[in-house]
Amino acid sequence: MNPLDRYEPLVDDPAAFRAACSRPLPTTVRVNTVKAGVDRVCRALAEEGVAHERVGWAGDLLRLPDSSPGDSWAFAHGWLHGQEEVSALPARALDPAPGERVWAACAAPGSKATHAAALMDDRGVVVANDSSLGRLSALRHNAERLGVTATTVTRADARSYSLAPFEFEAFDRALVDVPCSCEGTVRKNPDVVDEWTMDHVESLAELQTDVLRRAVQATRAGGTVVYSTCTFAPEENEAVLDGVLAAEDCHVVEWTPPEGLETSPGVTEWAGDEYDPQVGRATRVYPHQNDTGGFFCARLEAGG
């Protein structure tokens, strides 16, 4: 069975959804504003004849219609980072400010954590954690290449994360971009639909719930927690939120996605289950809406 069949009832235009899922992704890069401003990078790309277009909804993203991310001088300077357009959404939803303390719970390979640091003007604390040593090496490589000084890398199980190495007791914000069944990356990795099983979804949902619960606990009252995945499966998205809303002191907040990004609301009913109506405030992105990968993102407030 192709898991994408399951989601046709959720989308407005199933044929466009399926057609988009079968096309390759456009090439996009994020400008590493830690090292150079967007205007300067665009000028440098123009000088070296690299075609590029700004992405309307995200000021620091560029589409490269004719080239790979690594082809340019701008890349050699560490000014560009290959990053899928929609994966720039969670750091924007997190909206961190300079000087804040941010936890990226499952951070490797680091695109979203380094994006958060860039949005903080590389000032503050971004604790980028991952449990896998192999993936940590990619995270460290990316953080170094991008010249981020606000990042601290830890290796721990996010479900039982301890703040013992630090002198503070809670984070201001947490970015919970969890391991998932990744159907939203089908345009990049067509194999994900062949490897998909419901058992895997169920075991991931358990892990995702535990990580999100820990993030809510580790965030100060009034702080922001962003939960994101690249799957369409409500079991890994709204159902996880539903479980955490029942177990922890938090709520889903209204969040308006950036202007120019077409989105759909979270689903409140699926496969005979009804979820807490708050999950309808979450954001779904389907590939045909903006010619991107698929994504899910919700913004929560911890405490009170």
Binding site: A128, L136, L139, R140, A143, E144, G147, V148, T149, A150, T151, T152, V153, T154, R155, P165, F166
Partner: peptide, 9 residues
């Protein structure tokens, strides 16, 4: 501090 990485080299 017991962490895997601290800023950059």
């Amino acid at each position: 501090v017991e962490v895997e990485g601290l800023g950059m080299t």
